[in-house]
């Protein structure tokens, strides 16, 4: 079983309008909602790769129950701590004419010390039945910035592989505890460890710095479809070459899911694991709305992944 942690899940509500007019009456043609949050998206992709997955975090109120119900009915196991507040919603207004997506995102409910204590207890127990855990996404109000570092320590005590995919200080604090794999989340800011990532050279430098700071494997994305993968001994370049990409929004989460699956399946070579994770990202990017729903879709994308091993580790 692979666990995912989503501390700040959301109910994503997608409103389709013909053309969004500000300060005006807008008719909504279609409404749909889905459980959202980075860890939850990772769980959905893991499930599609035919692995059992359990998702943990905080939910509350009616929205929280909708999130839970959707996940369970799609075959994902849940073990959320229910808080007093209400799970946040993300309103996405899809202007179909111009293909604009306007996101109105709530901060999330307050998490108390009591909630955190109960969550740590759940997390610790669930680790006893997992091979890997992914720690992804933003922190809701009340959650300390060292939360991921604590979760990494607990998982390591139970010999569970940890995959950290976060931004800013939460990522940097997590690195101190030596996660198995670390991938900075660069959605909001193209910067990590005080450096910008604009090209391959920057990505290589950062990936090597991440491994030096404690991660066994570092994955750094750049120019949307390219990644640098570093270990203490090896350095790899990976990219996808497909011309029908329609949606890159969930691709990073699918990549994390692919890494979690491939690195947990012991028979996979490291180079195969890189290819599989890139193929998972591509399978997600080829779909306009929902995530891919079979392992076959991922395997069909493998021919469109190019990887290259650098012969000599680049000196920093």
């Amino acid at each position: 079983m692979i666990a995912t942690v989503t501390l700040n899940p959301a109910l994503d509500i997608i409103l389709e309008v013909e053309e969004l007019k500000l300060d005006h009456y807008n008719k909504v043609h279609n409404v749909r909602s889905t459980a959202g949050g980075k860890g939850i998206n990772v769980s959905k992709a893991i499930k599609s790769c035919q692995w059992d997955t359990v998702t943990l975090g905080f939910v509350g109120g009616n929205r929280g129950r909708i999130v839970e119900e959707e996940l369970r009915s799609s075959g994902i196991t849940t073990n959320f701590w229910h808080i007093e507040g209400e799970t946040r919603s993300n309103i996405i207004i899809w202007d179909k004419k111009r293909n604009y997506h306007t996101l109105l995102s709530e901060t999330g409910p307050l998490i108390t010390e009591y909630d955190l204590e109960m969550f740590y207890s759940i997390y610790s127990r669930v680790m006893s039945q997992c091979k890997a855990v992914t720690l992804s996404g933003s922190l809701p109000p009340g959650v300390p910035v060292d939360v991921y570092s604590k979760l990494i320590s607990i998982a390591k005590e139970r010999e569970v592989k940890t995959i950290l995919n976060a931004a800013g200080e939460a990522f940097e604090r997590g690195l101190e505890k030596g996660p198995y794999l670390a991938k900075p989340d660069l959605r909001e800011k193209n910067q990590i460890l005080g450096k910008n990532i604009n090209n391959e050279k920057d990505a290589i430098q950062i990936a090597q710095e991440i491994t030096q700071k404690g991660a066994e494997i570092a994955v750094v994305s750049f120019e949307q479809k390219k990644d640098i993968i570093a270990t203490h001994q090896e350095l790899w370049f990976a990219e996808t070459v497909h011309h029908q990409i329609v949606n890159l929004i969930g691709a990073a989460d699918a990549l994390v899911a692919g890494l979690a699956v491939a690195l947990t399946e012991e028979e996979q070579e490291f180079s195969e694991a890189i290819k599989f994770s890139m193929a998972a990202a591509l399978a997600s990017a080829l779909r306009e709305e929902e995530e891919f729903n079979s392992r076959e879709e991922v395997e069909n994308c493998l021919p469109y992944v190019k990887i290259k091993k650098y012969q000599n580790l680049v000196k920093r």
């Binding site: 129950r65 839970e68 996940l71 849940t78 073990n79 229910h82």
Partner: peptide, 25 residues
């Protein structure tokens, strides 16, 4: 089955247990 593994430890107190039962309905 319901894919939920909500559970408690034997040393959980009744106050916490009732909170869990009530919030999970």
């Amino acid at each position: 089955m319901i894919r939920d593994i909500t559970s408690v430890l034997p040393d959980c107190n009744l106050e916490n247990l009732i909170k869990i039962l009530s919030r999970h309905r």
